[in-house]
């Protein structure tokens, strides 16, 4: 009886990702320390991050809009992965109809649903989600 053959392999592939105008507006907005959303011209749903199609009714989004750089914590969880403990929150930005996932930098015992959060900006103005280092209590 032979030993089971177990192959240890990898799949290593390079990719490119084209953001499109609405995600680009959101990401470059972050580099400007603005949080950009979009409003549906049909059902008036406001979504953050800005997106090309309404998440509710699928209509083409109208214009982008700058959101108040403030959020409400709707729910959160604290997870320890490979020794790193982080709190992830779903945050309603500037009264939008959607929630955005980001890191919340605060003691879990200090968090409450409905509490006000504000972004803590990274020193580097990059067009990436990490331009916001974390949300922290206002």
């Amino acid at each position: 009886m032979s030993e089971p053959t177990v192959l240890h392999q990898k799949i290593n592939l390079p990719y490119r990702y084209t953001a499109g105008d609405f995600h680009k507006a959101f990401l470059y907005g972050l580099a400007d320390r603005r949080i950009v959303g979009s409003r549906c011209p049909a059902c008036l749903t406001v979504a953050v991050p800005a997106r090309p199609f309404c998440p509710e009714c699928s209509a083409h989004s109208g214009e982008t809009m700058d959101m108040k750089p403030q959020g409400t914590l709707e729910t959160w969880s604290t997870a320890t992965i490979r020794g790193v403990t982080r709190t992830y929150g779903l945050i309603r930005i500037g009264g939008a109809d959607t929630l955005m996932l980001h890191i919340v930098d605060a003691e879990p015992s200090a968090l409450e649903v409905g509490m006000e959060l504000v972004p803590r900006w990274s020193p580097e103005p990059v067009p990436e989600i990490t331009a916001i280092a974390a949300f922290v209590p206002a």
Binding site: K10, I11, P14, Y15, Y17, T18, H23, K24
Partner: peptide, 11 residues
């Protein structure tokens, strides 16, 4: 805005 990255899956 075109982001480049490498996906590297080990299994």
């Amino acid at each position: 805005l075109r982001l480049e990255y490498v996906a590297d899956f080990e299994y």
